[in-house]
């Protein structure tokens, strides 16, 4: 029995714990009995064919999706319909979207300071200092006064990452962060993510960037039809996939 399985069963450790989570969209069963435990500082890459439920899985962790059965506990807080719990979880968990979702009516700096000011109630000056620090970290401090529409896709996604970091989250969720980017911009975003990973933040990342998975992940999870089919360390996962479906998926994704 693995450490993860033990954690899942005892319901302890692990900053994120999902126990028997089931979700339906109407009649469609998107998540089937998901059991997952994520340790503090762990980097997890989730992959799988489209429609396999991987985005839904991480969106559940941030209460962007409701689930009908099972339990999700984030940093000791159970995710229920209780708004207080949802607020508590969301302020610990940052999320980066495929489509960036920057606020087009606010400058880059205002995008970054919005949540700290209104949620954390940080004074404006302080929020701006933090924002500038993180903009430096994603290497675009000079863009602070611009509007999102003036930036390239890669720059926008880096701003989106910085925006999440400004809330000083314990967990970062990435929902296909590079899928909407032109090829030449993927690297600049991945570089930022790798740097972030090296600092020990907990990361869950839905992505098809297998190179990223090899360098960064502690664990790779393969999902299909709403189930976790296989999970392993990246080396084993790529070199020695066990399940047929994993093999098929990997052959399709790595063949070109």
């Amino acid at each position: 029995m693995t450490a993860h399985e033990m954690a899942a069963e005892t319901g302890q450790h692990g900053i994120i714990q999902m126990l028997g989570v089931n979700k339906w969209f109407g009649e469609f069963h998107v998540l089937r009995d998901i059991n997952l435990s994520v340790d503090q500082g762990e980097k997890i890459v989730i992959c799988g064919p489209s429609g396999s439920g991987k985005s839904t899985l991480i969106r559940c962790i941030n209460a962007l999706e409701e689930y009908q059965r099972g339990q999700i506990i984030v940093d000791g807080v159970p995710l229920t319909n209780n708004l207080k719990n949802i607020d508590a979880v969301r302020s610990e968990v940052g999320m980066v979207f495929q489509q960036f979702n920057l606020f087009p009516h606010l400058t880059v700096l205002e995008n970054l300071t919005l949540a700290p000011i209104w949620v954390r109630k940080v004074p404006k000056r302080e929020a701006e200092e933090t924002a500038m620090y993180f903009l430096g970290r994603v290497k675009i401090p000079e863009q602070a006064a611009k509007y999102p529409g003036q930036l390239s896709g890669g720059q926008q996604q880096r701003v989106a990452i910085a925006r999440s970091l400004c809330m000083r989250p314990k967990v970062m969720l990435f929902d296909e962060p590079t899928s909407a980017l032109d090829p030449e911009m993927i690297k600049e975003v991945l570089d930022v993510m790798i740097e972030l990973a090296n600092e020990g933040i907990t990361m869950l990342c839905v992505t098809h960037e297998m190179g990223f998975a090899r360098t960064v992940a502690n664990r790779v999870i393969f999902m299909d039809r709403g189930q976790i089919i296989e999970q392993n360390e990246p080396e084993e996962f790529f070199n020695n996939p066990q399940s047929e479906r994993t093999q098929l998926f990997l052959s399709q994704i790595l063949s070109h």
Partner: peptide, 25 residues
């Protein structure tokens, strides 16, 4: 809808999402 989601994911309550993000746009 992504705007609402992004704002909620940052921890903004419904009223603030409406006031700071949705209405101005």
């Amino acid at each position: 809808y992504g705007q609402t989601e992004a704002a909620s994911a940052l921890g903004l309550r419904k009223g603030l999402v409406l006031r700071l993000v949705v209405l101005p746009q």
